[in-house]
Every structure is written in structure tokens, then in C-alpha cells.
Amino acid sequence: MLSLSDAKKIAAYKAVDENITSESKIIGIGSGSTIVYVIERILQLKDSLDKEIIYIPTSFQSRLLITEGGLNLGDIDQYPEIDVTIDGADEVDENLNAIKGGGACHLREKLVAEAAKKFIIVADYSKHSTTLGEKWKQGVPIEVIPFAYLRVMNSLKELGCDNPILRMAKAKAGPVISDNGNFIVDAHFGLIKQPKELLEKIKLLTGVVEVGLFVNMAKSAYFGNEDGSVSIKHT
């Protein structure tokens, strides 16, 4: 039986093998623990890939992985059109809708995902569910302008969130600050049977920068399983 880390690894390797080729020119690199294995596999295949490939990070973490690996670093404002983006997820439903933002990077992750011709999700078996909210219990991550967070939290209650929580840092006193200088509110809505509608309602709230619901975006998802196999789902 594979550990969650090993399940992430085999899924990441297969996703890279099948989606990053010599034809790929601009690659989006997501954030989180799974992306370490994505970069690891890219570096293993480096000699067989185009040396001019540009890699677009979604966070400080992925930027560091790219530069430490000696890969070509680019930014979304330089390369607004991306061939393929590979990223992890906190939960993925049967329709490949996802919750992202556990690492507070979902604004940049969504920008890089939307800019890609193909958005590929990589995850371990524990992230796959029938309905969003079934396994990810921390709530929908919402990036919020700092001075608006209390008003947004009150509005989220009106939308059906019982107890929105301002995410607090673990190594310091105070809230988590995103790479963009904003706060993160985690809003639990239970099972999310209509993620598109919920996303639209939250996005309309003044002060909300981005919502960690990725709806109708992924082309494929790779799930590493306990038995060492990889399940691939397509939209």
C-alpha cells in the first residue's frame, strides 16, 4: 500500500510524462507538495526536453523550485498564453471541479491555470471525492482585501456559511498573508453540489479578490492510488 506521498509522486510523474513533451514551450507550475515531484520529474527528463522551455510559477515556492533546478523562469505578464499547467488540488470532484487554496496561492494558481491550453490536476487518492466538501473540511479558501475581511465574512454568512474563519499564521501572531498581501478566509459550506453557482455568488462580494473554487477548468486529473496505479479522468 502506497503512502500519500508516494501516490502523489507516481501521479506527478505520469502527468509530466504524458503532458510535457518536446513540443511544449511554456509550462505553468503550480504550488504545494505535489509540485515538488512535478519538478523532480521534469529535471529527470531535462535532457530530452526543449532547452528553451519557459516555466511560469504560481507562488514563491514554485519560483524557487524552478530557479534551483536551473530551469528558465518566466512570469504570467510576459507569457499570457501557456501550453500546459500542472498543479495539485485540495479536493477534486467527479466532474474535475476542484477546491484549491490550502497553501494560499489560489489567485496566481487560477491565473496560470486559465492561461493554459491544458490545465492538469495531480493528486493522491485521498483528494478524490464525489462532491466538493466531502473530504476537504477546511472550507473554501477566499482571498480578501485586508480592510474588507469583516464585511466579507458577514456576507459569507448570508450565503450559507455558518462560521467563516480568518486563517491565522502558525509561526507568528496574526493572519496568513498571501503572496499578494491579502488575507485568506476559509468558508465552510458543507457539500457543494453546485460549485459554479457558489463561485459566482462569492466573486460578486466586494472585497473578494479570488475564490478557491476551480470550476470547469481542468482537462484531466491524475490520481495516484494505494495499489501503485494511476487513475486518469478527463472532461
Rank of each mutant, 00 (worst) to 15 (best):
I56N: 11
N216R: 01
A115I: 13
I10Y: 04
K135D: 05
S59Q: 08
G69E: 05
H234W: 01
F147D: 09
K233Q: 14
Y125F: 15
R41N: 02
G69R: 09
D90F: 06
D87I: 12
L2D: 07
K196V: 03
K25S: 13
Q61Y: 05
I56E: 10
K170W: 00
L166M: 06
A12R: 09
Q61G: 03
I53K: 09
D227I: 05
L156R: 13
S5C: 01
I20C: 07
G207V: 07
A115L: 10
C105A: 15
E197M: 05
N163G: 12
G28Q: 09
F223Y: 15
G181S: 11
I27S: 08
V36W: 08
T58P: 10
K172A: 01
K117M: 07
I192G: 04
G102V: 05
G101D: 10
G212I: 06
T34V: 14
N72H: 09
L159Y: 10
A187Q: 02
E226V: 15
A116D: 06
G190K: 11
E18G: 07
L111M: 15
D227T: 04
K135E: 02
A12C: 02
V36P: 00
L49N: 13
P146W: 12
V112N: 12
S33F: 00
I184M: 12
H128E: 14
E18P: 05
E143N: 02
D124E: 11
V144R: 11
S220G: 00
N216S: 11
L65M: 15
Y79R: 10
L45P: 00
I202R: 15
H106T: 01
I29A: 03
R151W: 04
D6A: 07
I66E: 07
T34L: 01
F189C: 03
I56Y: 10
D17G: 00
D87E: 10
A104N: 14
